[in-house]
Design a protein around this nucleic acid. Structure first.
Ligand code: SF4
Ligand code: SF4
Lengths: 166, 166
DNA sequence: ATAATCATGGATGATTTATATCCATGATTC
DNA sequence: GAATCATGGATATAAATCATCCATGATTAT
């Protein structure tokens, strides 16, 4: 079992976008270069964030992405679900309904204990993810970063940020 | 993200094995037929359970599998980790060390906030899984099962269980 | 208006992982 | 010695993921 690396990309992008001033935007191309990842593929993930209501996109020259709502209102769970989907991690294939002891399907009502245990564990996972907001994550990343990285990132932001007129 | 269905197979097999009397065993072939799944592939998963110290295997005629320790000492987490591995679900690819703002690798000490948040959420998941033992799961499955299934399973067990001499 | 910039969406191919099979080997019991 | 069963490796198939390409439409600067 493995979480797609698109989630890591999206989380990093979201944190950078959260660091923009006001309603400024940053183009997807810049985000791809910054992280050294495939541009066209990253755009797909950014689109997923837009669809999920996490980011806003503005097209055209001087366009790009910005947060759709406050950074404190966006959780890590939102990002994971936007990229990876909301499907349960454990998907019962109903093997109890196969083999020589099976009876009619209608006799099996509701999920069994295994399924329930799996789903409740998943709920605990999601709950833990939802406790981290984009705001708290951004703070953590900033603290642990090397001073040189911070200054380089500042310069890079100055070159790529599209300041909002308003 | 998806948990392999081998986990579902292994969990069901473990519950059945847990229901055997004393030190009786049951052959892998019977378990495969019971669940209507590929025999050769299921054997691989059963082997994983043996390696993990969850099951014991006895070769030869009248051989098969039995629990390696008490059902109350085997958790759902043990089974998941035996089949799916213990690798973290979120695997940081260190994209912060790529792109134009990167500096020497030694400047990045320890995991960042994103990684820490992911890993702590995973820990919550594992903790929840560890709260369910094979004993409690077996009880839950028995309660929710249809009477006909229980009786058919009893007959099937009578045919396939290899009673222990001792 | 025109051109440049950028997001969107679908189609497509490559890569990796999961699933499944096959066969040879060794251990154990009858 | 023969039958039964687990083990292990090699290998094939299916599916999910990762990545690219190209055509389209929307927006802004000139
Ligand atoms: S017993 Fe649980 S996990 Fe197994 S097939 Fe039924 S619902 Fe699914
Ligand atoms: S910031 Fe966190 S998730 Fe991103 S590359 Fe670094 S350790 Fe990994």
């Amino acid at each position: 079992m493995k979480l797609g690396e698109g989630v890591e990309w999206a989380a990093h992008c979201a944190i950078i976008v959260a660091g923009l001033a006001g309603r400024s935007t940053i183009p997807g191309k810049a985000l791809a270069e910054y992280h050294g990842v495939s541009e066209t593929y990253l755009l797909k993930h950014l689109k997923a964030l837009v669809t999920a209501g996490i980011l806003e996109s503005v097209p055209g020259p001087r366009g790009g992405y910005r947060l759709a709502r406050d950074a404190a209102e966006i959780t890590l769970l939102d990002i994971v679900e936007a990229i990876d989907g909301k499907q349960p991690v454990f998907r019962c294939t109903e093997i109890r309904q196969r083999g020589p002891t099976a009876v009619e399907a209608c006799a099996y009502r509701g999920p069994c204990g295994i399924n329930r245990a799996m789903l409740s564990a998943e709920a605990a996972w999601r709950l833990a993810l939802a406790e981290h907001t984009l705001a708290s994550l951004a703070a953590g990343v900033a603290i642990s970063a090397d001073p040189r990285v911070i200054s380089r990132t500042g310069e890079w932001l100055a070159r790529n940020e599209r300041k909002s007129a308003s």
